[in-house]
Design a protein around this nucleic acid. Structure first.
Lengths: 105, 105
DNA sequence: CATGGATACTGCGAAACTCGTAGTATCCAT
DNA sequence: ATGGATACTACGAGTTTCGCAGTATCCATG
C-alpha cells in the first residue's frame, strides 16, 4: 500500500498555507476563530508547529475562518487539495454535472 | 455565514458509512487499523458514536483501512464527499485535466 | 546601530480528555 | 431459548491539551 504522508504534517502545512493566503497572523487567526485573545497566538502556534493537536470543533472553526472546507486541511495529495478548493466555488448544478461525468466510469 | 454541520457528526457519519461499505465490524476495523484486538471494538465504537475523538494519526489509519482519503472523513458536503472518492480513482493525467477545467473559471 | 512593536515561539503545573479494563445490552441464526 | 457475534458503557488511570507567563526573532524607523 502506498504510504501516505503523515497527516499531522499535512495539517500543519495546509493550516499555514491557508493562513498566509488570508494574510493573517497566528494571533489574528485565533481571535477570528473565537479564541480568547490572550491565548490565540499560543494555540495557533502550537497547532501550526504540530506541538499539539486541536479537537475537531476547533479544526472546523479554523477552516471556516480560513474560508476552506474542513476536508481541505486533511488533503494528503496537493491535487486533491486544489480540487477541494475549486469544487466549492461551483454552483450546485455544476457540481452535479461534474460528478455525473466522473462517477460514471 | 452559512453554518456548517457540526464536524463531529460529519466524522461519525462518514466513518460509519465507510465501514459499512467495507462490510467490517467495529472490532474488525479496529484490528485492521492496528489496534490491539482487546480494545479495537471499544475504541471504534466510541469514535463512531462521538463519545471520544481519535487523534489525527488514528484518523489517518482508519481512512487507510477504509480505503478513503483522510479528507473524506471530514467532508461536510455530500457532493464533496462523492467528489473526493471519485477523484482518487482517476489517473494523474485525468486529475490534472479536470483541475485545468474547473480552476480556470 | 539601537529601539520598539509585532510576530513567532516555549516551559510549566492545572485542567480536560482519552485510554484500557471489565463488563452489560442487543441482535439474530439455529 | 441459547450461544456467539456485535454493539455499547461506567470508571479510575494515564495522557494530552490547556492557560499563563514569559523569551526569541523579525524588521521598520530614528
Amino acid at each position: 500500500m502506498a504510504r501516505r504522508t503523515d497527516i499531522r504534517l499535512v495539517f500543519q502545512r495546509r493550516l499555514l498555507e491557508a493562513r498566509q493566503r488570508e494574510q493573517l497572523s497566528q494571533k489574528e487567526l485565533g481571535i477570528r476563530a473565537g479564541l480568547d485573545p490572550s491565548v490565540a497566538s499560543t494555540r495557533i502556534n502550537r497547532y501550526e508547529l504540530g506541538v499539539h493537536e486541536p479537537d475537531f470543533a476547533s479544526v472546523q472553526r479554523l477552516a471556516e475562518t480560513l474560508k476552506v472546507p474542513t476536508a481541505y486541511l486533511f488533503a494528503e495529495d496537493d491535487r486533491l487539495a486544489r480540487m477541494i478548493l475549486a469544487f466549492e466555488q461551483l454552483s450546485v448544478a455544476e457540481k452535479e454535472q461534474l460528478l455525473k461525468g466522473i462517477e460514471s466510469t
